[in-house]
Write a protein that binds this DNA or RNA. Sequence first.
DNA 1: ACTTGTGTTGACGTCGACGTCAAGTCGGAG
DNA 2: CTCCGACTTGACGTCGACGTCAACACAAGT
Lengths: 123, 123
Amino acid sequence: MRIGELARRGGTTTRALRYYESLGLLPARRGANGQREYDEDDLRLVHEIRSLTGIGFALEDTRPFVQCLRDGHTTGDACAASVEVYRRKLAELDDCITRLDAVRDQVRAQLREAEQRSKPCGR
Amino acid sequence: MRIGELARRGGTTTRALRYYESLGLLPARRGANGQREYDEDDLRLVHEIRSLTGIGFALEDTRPFVQCLRDGHTTGDACAASVEVYRRKLAELDDCITRLDAVRDQVRAQLREAEQRSKPCGR
DNA sequence: ACTTGTGTTGACGTCGACGTCAAGTCGGAG
DNA sequence: CTCCGACTTGACGTCGACGTCAACACAAGT
């Protein structure tokens, strides 16, 4: 299939696919006319990339997963490098959530205080 | 005081202060020589901006707080517009945390599954 | 007077993941 | 043959909060 179909079926755009190729993430074979030619395996790679970036993974973080699939594994996370990314991301998420929780509490407290001051009168 | 001192005492850089000025967030008086001249009140504004951006507020979100201080209030959140920003931010934080929690659980599950597959043998 | 430090404006660079536009080529329908 | 849609490469735009550099003026210490 050509790039337009791959984009449609992969839930993305041709621009994104060319961008992935420019990063070496999604290399493409070329037909006699110079147009990019893709197959079902490529569609799997696109799905892997999209599902990972969809939950907040950076494109570079998807690289091990994509490589893993290209190496013939049935899932992108069957390789050690991918699992390592999982671990790192999990740690990042924990950190992030912890910080956001703290900020939320802080903002909540400030909000309560500000509302308190604005209605100092009884009732 | 001049811009360098304000930057030092405000815990930021001269570049940032000029940037704030370009946004109309921190207007500056000028001395006879054309140099920016600041006072202690300006330092308060800088502290307000930094403490808010420090916890993740966008610069534009700090505008009501800064305006509030310039209007003579003792705190930046003494005005309705500021409190409104608090409320909006709190909602954003709740949303964000909820989503991140879901993602974390998802990644955790994937990680467990991947580790499971890599060590299918007992023990 | 000289040097060093601090100030000024203006403009381009950064990061990530593409969007958008331009100008041209290719494929199939009518 | 013509036309439209899909394809090609290349290059600039976007967003936010500044960093960095250039080239110059001003201030203060010895």
